[in-house]
């Protein structure tokens, strides 16, 4: 991939989301689940950043905090609008958000629960248009017909309800809704993980076509490393609320710097019976984000752990150009990527 020198679209600085744990009659605060715990990354225009990690690592919460679907505890989300103005999303008033959401949209994971079963396609896809008052009456219908055509559905279907459609078609409906307001930036939260492989390929291709056609920028949240590799320009890996590594896709997959990334990639079953089966099996389980271990959160499962890892938390540093890792031993280890 050529070096991306497009202007910056989004810069996330030290994003934190703690969910309080309340116990007892008085609901006193007894602690917090550190779902997102100081995350930093940036996305340039027309770029796809893949955000991967296992369940509970905070990848979905990160996406939702950027959308302000949930309110972040602290941190900055600097978004550059099409007119060049940079705004900090968490500081925005509720009323101004509606205007902004014309530019930032979301695609959800489950195409069954994210579409209202009592609304027709016209209502579902047309709702963003009527809510923001950009179109009325006949115009809405025309725009919905156009949107359905863009995502590969027949406009004649617009008076039908979601139950009449398969999973892949429903995901297309969700994509049409997200496109309704001509957004610049789309947070796609596991958009293909509920779909069968042959349908997955159709939706991934559609997302790529739309990006090329409309110059979209994606934050692609997913747990499937092969899907993320296929669609992303750069990939960020999360573990227990923190970013542990971020780099250009091929660099990350071939020369990872963090032991967790290495283990994650070696865990994926490869669809090739002749592939060598040298797996790294991680011991134990993902740390509890309400009670994380000391030092580096990954150290109890890390096979390269040394004393300093147990005591001191490493910082996310740029070890190679545009390649960030959060590991004390990033420089000395030579880890195995997907090639090895």
């Amino acid at each position: 991939m050529a070096e991306n020198t497009n202007p910056m679209l989004l810069r996330v600085n030290n994003l934190v989301k703690h969910f309080p744990i309340r116990r007892g009659f008085l609901k006193t605060n007894v602690g917090a689940v550190r779902a997102v715990d100081g995350v930093n990354f940036h996305i340039r225009e027309r770029e796809t950043l893949g955000l991967v990690g296992e369940s509970g690592c905070g990848k979905t919460t990160t996406g939702r905090c950027i959308m302000r679907a949930i309110e972040p505890t602290s941190g900055e989300v600097l978004y550059t609008r099409s007119n060049g103005e940079t705004i900090n999303l968490p500081e925005l008033e509720r009323d101004d958000l509606k205007d902004l959401r014309k530019e930032i949209q979301m695609i959800f994971q489950d195409p069954y629960s994210s579409l209202n079963p009592r609304m027709t396609l016209l209502q579902i896809v047309g709702e963003p248009l009527t809510v923001t008052k950009v179109a009325h009456g006949r115009e809405v219908e025309e725009r919905v017909a156009q949107l359905l055509r863009i995502v590969g559905l027949r406009p004649e279907y617009m008076r039908r309800y979601p139950h009449a459609f398969s999973g892949g078609q429903r995901q297309r409906i969700g994509i049409a809704r997200a496109l309704a307001l001509n957004p610049r930036f789309i947070v796609a939260d596991e958009p293909v993980s509920a779909l069968d492989v042959s349908i997955q390929a159709q939706v991934l291709n559609l997302l790529q076509d739309l990006q090329a056609e409309y110059g979209l920028t994606y934050l692609f949240v997913a747990h499937d490393l092969s899907v993320v590799r296929h669609i992303s320009d750069r990939v960020a890996v999360m573990y227990v609320g923190k970013l542990v590594e971020m780099a250009a896709t091929e660099e990350l997959y071939y020369t990872p710097l963090h032991p967790y990334t290495e283990a994650l990639m070696s865990s994926v079953p490869k669809p090739d019976p002749r592939a060598t089966k040298r797996r790294i099996i991680l011991e134990g389980e993902v740390a509890n984000p309400a009670n994380p271990p000391s030092g580096c959160y990954f150290h109890p499962r890390c096979r390269y752990c040394i004393d300093i890892c147990k005591e001191e938390e490493p910082e996310l540093l740029e070890y190679r150009p545009e390649h960030y890792a959060k590991c004390h031993r990033a420089e000395e280890l030579s880890l195995r990527g997907v090639g090895g």
């Binding site: 390929a201 291709n205 092969s226 296929h230 896709t249 490869k270 669809p271």
Partner: peptide, 22 residues
């Protein structure tokens, strides 16, 4: 089916071969 899966160990091709229809 085999052509429609994105593979980790293979070179990243631009498009996946999808099965048309449903």
């Amino acid at each position: 089916l085999l052509n429609s899966i994105p593979r980790l160990g293979h070179d990243k091709s631009e498009r996946l071969e999808s099965i048309k229809g449903v």
